[in-house]
Design a protein around this nucleic acid. Structure first.
Length: 189
DNA sequence: GTATCGATTAGC
DNA sequence: CTAATCGATACA
């Protein structure tokens, strides 16, 4: 699962939306497990919401939270074992006009900085929950990751209480599109 | 059925 | 620091 999280950094996420192609490079992720990870939605086992997390890898787990945000995850373990990688930030690559239309006029690096902002910029909803991320229309490119020579930083996960000690947030060190969070870095890779 | 709480964000 | 805002979940 951490392997998947690491492999996602620098990869391109593409959404062939009705209005056109939106895409971005993944620069920040967080890994979540199932039972045994108290910060995970799936820590008490499968529920209607977390069903997808227990399903086949390479699918989208989209959840709705705080009454207003849709967040995107990539299911990351074989069927039957719950795990997902939360996509926390993207560097916008194409479709910036549409992202700006949803997010407002913002500097490019702020369009998809933060998991709620990613969902908002791309126009994700619960209709995207369970989508196959290989087939599209929402998919992850299999081209080699591009990290621009940046190393991978590791820290605790953001916005959780239980399970906060686990160093399962990965990001590209120094990338301007990584969300500004005061979680101390554990190490660079 | 009701009550509580967010894997967040923007704004003061 | 807090409000916003509502689905998922737990519990009676």
């Amino acid at each position: 699962m951490l392997q998947v999280a690491r492999g996602l950094l620098g990869r391109m996420l593409v959404y062939d939306a009705p209005e056109g192609r939106l895409s971005g490079r993944i620069v920040e992720v967080e890994a979540y497990r199932g039972p045994g990870d108290p910060a995970s939605h799936a820590w008490r086992g499968a529920t209607p919401r977390t069903r997808i997390m227990f399903g086949a890898p390479g699918h989208a787990y989209v959840y709705f939270t705080y009454g207003m945000h849709h967040c995107l995850n990539v299911v990351a373990e074989p069927e039957g074992r719950a795990a997902a990688v939360l996509v926390r930030a993207l560097e916008p690559l194409s479709g910036l006009e549409w992202m700006a239309r949803r997010r407002g006029r913002l500097p490019r690096e702020r369009l998809m900085r933060g998991p709620g902002c990613v969902g908002r910029a791309l126009g994700l909803t619960l209709r995207h929950d369970g989508l196959d991320l290989v087939e599209g229309p929402l998919w992850i490119s299999n081209l080699a990751p591009v990290r621009g020579g940046r190393r991978i930083g590791v820290s605790g996960r953001v916005g959780i209480r239980r399970g906060a000690g686990r160093p399962w947030r990965l990001f590209l060190i120094g990338h301007p599109c990584v969300s500004a969070v005061r979680t101390p870095m554990r190490r660079g890779v």
